[in-house]
């Protein structure tokens, strides 16, 4: 998978999770109970303009109380967030075939407006967003209890199938004037029984680590060269 596809995937997840703050409903407050899970999600981006192609991606999502890790299903790119003992969140992009991690250092995170919310990272929606969606009905997804929650904001509709016990979405569907973006859970298991395991943190520790701020001074580094040239437009 190309890096652009990976980033498209990221963009789509962002798109799906835009705030829906106008639907505040404090009676439906959801508390965070983090269970260790391994998931596989599929995502479709369906442009309303029929002349544009639909794109589909799939990715793994692993969660423990203090770690979130993702991996593009047919690629080798992933990301990891780790909550440290003092509450900071360490964020790295992972390039497994190169055994390289690109770090975003604490000094650069606030400068770059990074503002990691652990609830968002581990449940894919903010507490406020979830509270704002109105429950419509209960159902079953992959043999698990789910609640369909819906809402509308800024002329866009949002529909979430929420796994209450796992605190995860079984699906998120968002429509705006240009496209429909649909995220769907296709596989969920306890982390200990997962057919696809995340890369062990100890193994990632042994990866080569590069500070993202150093890219400009690594013009001859083979990995950085590959990164910067990976998605160039070749005419």
């Amino acid at each position: 998978m190309k890096i652009t596809d990976f980033l498209k995937c990221v963009f789509c997840i962002v798109f799906l999770c835009l705030p829906i703050s106008s639907l505040a409903d404090s009676t439906n407050k959801i508390t965070q109970q983090t269970t260790e899970v391994a998931c596989r999600y599929e995502m479709s981006v369906i442009p309303h303009d029929k002349s544009q192609a639909t794109s589909n991606t799939a990715w793994f999502f692993w969660r423990t109380p203090n770690m979130i890790q993702t991996l593009v299903a047919n690629g080798d790119h992933g990301e990891i967030w780790q909550r440290t003992v003092n509450g900071s969140i360490q964020y790295r992009k992972l390039y497994h075939s190169d055994k390289t991690a690109v770090e975003y250092m604490p000094a650069d995170i606030p400068t770059n407006n990074m503002n990691f919310d652990w609830f968002k990272l581990s449940t894919m929606l903010t507490q406020q967003e979830l509270n704002a969606l109105k429950p419509v009905k209960t159902t079953q997804v992959l043999g698990r209890n789910a609640v369909l929650r819906t809402g509308k904001t800024n002329g866009q509709t949002l529909e979430v199938l929420w796994l209450s016990d796992e605190n995860l979405p079984a699906s998120i569907t968002r429509n705006d004037e240009n496209r429909t973006v649909a995220l769907r859970l296709v596989e969920i298991t306890p982390l200990s029984a997962a057919p696809h395991k995340p890369i062990a943190v100890e193994d990632i520790t042994n990866y080569r680590h590069i500070d993202a701020a150093d890219f400009g001074d690594m013009e001859n580094d083979p990995f950085v060269k590959k990164m910067m040239a990976a998605d160039g437009h070749h005419h």
Binding site: V10, L18, T123, T126, A212
Partner: peptide, 16 residues
């Protein structure tokens, strides 16, 4: 800043 679950914002270090 990205409001939902995302890889975060890493400034503008584009690859394409």
């Amino acid at each position: 800043a990205t409001p939902g679950w995302a890889s975060g914002s890493e400034g503008h270090t584009p690859t394409s």
